[in-house]
């Protein structure tokens, strides 16, 4: 059995186990209402996670994703509030803002050959600062703009019991999976993450791939931003703070290698679900939310330690058979 397959089976068992556990422990967990809310929460996390999965498979890391969400949401909201252009234009503008954010990361990483980690750590500050600048009004105070535009608020709605954002997440996950597994771009993302030299020898343009994955992450952040700000009927500079850790956690739990070259969208989706269920369930148990942090930290460590152990174990086993 391959590592990713084993990983998914373990995750599936874990998801079922924690669901059973929370259902027994709390009467509020396994209700239709909560489950759809849970899916909504998972979707906010998941849409961005699909984008960042590409970055991480290509061997990068995007710590700016949360700030990128805040920035694009601010751009979007302020566009709606202060211009009289057709409302639907906010969509391309928001996506463009996301693409710009990704291009900025890609540019700095490619041009100056700097580690992804430190670049996105710095650009995180830049983006959240920009979001704050947009939020500050003439009087020097931050006052949030509230949106009551029905077209915009439509995004927070539901189709039956299902939130639109969940539908969007499903579509984006399928699209992401397709892009990763069925296109040259996707194949090259793996190649760049696993073996830059070999990728180059096969004629892969590494810089182009790096730009591509960061732009995807930026655009994913901007899509999250649209749905999230629509639900909140506003946007604030703080809205994405800290989500990068949840996103990276979900991706790593889903089996994408922190060192690049391995992983897939299905794993990420499962990781997102698992993480959201754990967070939601702990919340429903009405115990202190501090437990959430401890559990998430512990799960991440368990996930990477398992990967490393399994890799060594299977390598040893393989070489004994030969």
């Amino acid at each position: 059995m391959t590592q990713s397959m084993l990983r998914k089976i373990i995750l599936l068992v874990l998801i079922l186990a924690v669901m059973t556990f929370f259902t027994i422990m709390s009467p509020y967990f396994f209700t239709a209402n909560n489950l759809f809310t849970l899916l909504q929460e998972a979707s906010f996390l998941g849409i961005a996670a699909v984008g960042v999965t590409f970055v991480m498979i290509a061997g990068g890391l995007d710590l700016s994703i949360g700030s990128a969400t805040a920035l694009t949401a601010m751009v979007c909201i302020n566009f709606l509030e202060y211009t009289n252009l057709p409302v639907l234009l906010f969509l391309p503008i928001s996506l463009l803002a996301g693409a710009f954010v990704g291009t900025f990361n890609g540019f700095v990483i490619n041009r100056f050959k700097l580690p992804d980690f430190i670049v996105t750590l710095s650009s995180k500050g830049v983006f959240s600062g920009l979001a704050l600048v947009i939020a500050v009004k003439e009087n020097g105070f931050v006052s949030n703009v509230f949106i009551d535009n029905p077209t915009y608020l439509w995004f927070a709605g539901k189709l039956g019991p299902l939130y639109y954002v969940t539908i969007a997440f499903v579509i984006i996950a399928i699209g992401g999976h397709f892009l990763l597994k069925w296109t040259k771009f996707g194949t090259y993302v793996y190649a760049v993450g696993a073996n830059k030299n070999a990728a180059m020898l096969s004629g892969v343009d590494i810089k182009q791939i790096k730009y591509g994955v960061y732009i995807l992450a930026g655009v994913a952040a901007s899509i999250t931003a649209i749905f999230q700000s629509s639900r909140m009927m506003t946007a604030m500079p703080e809205m994405g703070i800290g989500t990068e850790l949840d996103i990276i956690a979900a991706i790593v739990i889903g089996g994408t290698a922190f060192r690049g070259g391995r992983g897939d969208i299905i794993g990420t989706v499962m990781g997102v679900l698992f993480l959201t269920i754990v967070k939601n369930g702990i919340f429903k148990l009405q115990i202190t939310p501090a437990i959430q942090q401890i559990v998430i930290g512990g799960i991440i460590i368990a996930a990477v330690v398992f990967d490393e152990w399994y890799r060594n174990y299977s390598a040893r086993k393989r070489n004994m058979v030969v």
Binding site: L61, T288, Q293, G297, I301, V304
Partner: peptide
Amino acid sequence: INVPPLIITMAAKTYLFGIAMLISKG
């Protein structure tokens, strides 16, 4: 175990914060 220090200490940042919250009850 030879795991990347970045992810381990990032996770540690999370769980240590959780423990601090738990002990101080926030």
